[in-house]
Amino acid sequence: MSLKDKADSMKDKASGTAKEVEGKVTGDKAREGEGKIQKTMGKTKDVLSDAKDAIKDKVDDIKDGLDKNKKSGTDKVDKAEGPEKKQD
């Protein structure tokens, strides 16, 4: 998770918690609900950022595998051609 993503999600969770508590203390159900929603958004951003990182890692692994196969595949083609046949 990038530092920016982490800071953004932490900000939403903290702000959401503060709004939720404020709403409970003042009896303002709308403010309490707004806080719960914002806190949930922060948690969701965490999950999405982790998923994004996991997908990026898998894509990088696949690219590395393809690069290795490409390099070893070229060697196999060269070996498969073998020595040239002599013409009589």
Rank of each mutant, 00 (worst) to 15 (best):
L3P: 02
L3H: 04
K4D: 06
K6Q: 10
A7I: 11
A7D: 02
D8F: 12
M10F: 03
K11W: 03
K11V: 06
K11Q: 11
D12S: 12
D12H: 09
A14Q: 06
A14F: 05
S15A: 15
A18Q: 11
K19E: 13
V21C: 01
E22H: 10
K24C: 00
V25N: 02
V25T: 04
V25I: 12
T26A: 12
D28G: 04
A30F: 03
R31W: 00
R31T: 13
E32N: 08
E32P: 01
G33A: 11
E34D: 11
G35H: 03
K36S: 02
Q38Y: 01
M41E: 02
M41A: 06
G42E: 02
T44V: 07
V47F: 04
V47N: 08
V47E: 11
A51P: 00
K52L: 09
K52G: 07
K52M: 09
A54E: 03
I55F: 11
I55T: 07
K56Q: 11
K56R: 14
D57A: 14
D57C: 00
V59Y: 08
V59S: 03
V59T: 07
D60Q: 10
D61L: 09
I62D: 00
K63C: 02
D64L: 12
D64C: 00
G65R: 12
L66Y: 13
L66T: 09
D67T: 15
K68I: 12
K71M: 07
K71L: 12
S72T: 15
G73V: 06
G73R: 05
G73F: 05
T74N: 08
T74Q: 08
D75K: 15
K76C: 05
V77E: 08
D78E: 10
D78T: 14
K79P: 00
K79A: 12
K79L: 13
A80V: 00
E81M: 13
E84Q: 08
K85E: 05
K85Q: 09
K86L: 14
Q87K: 14
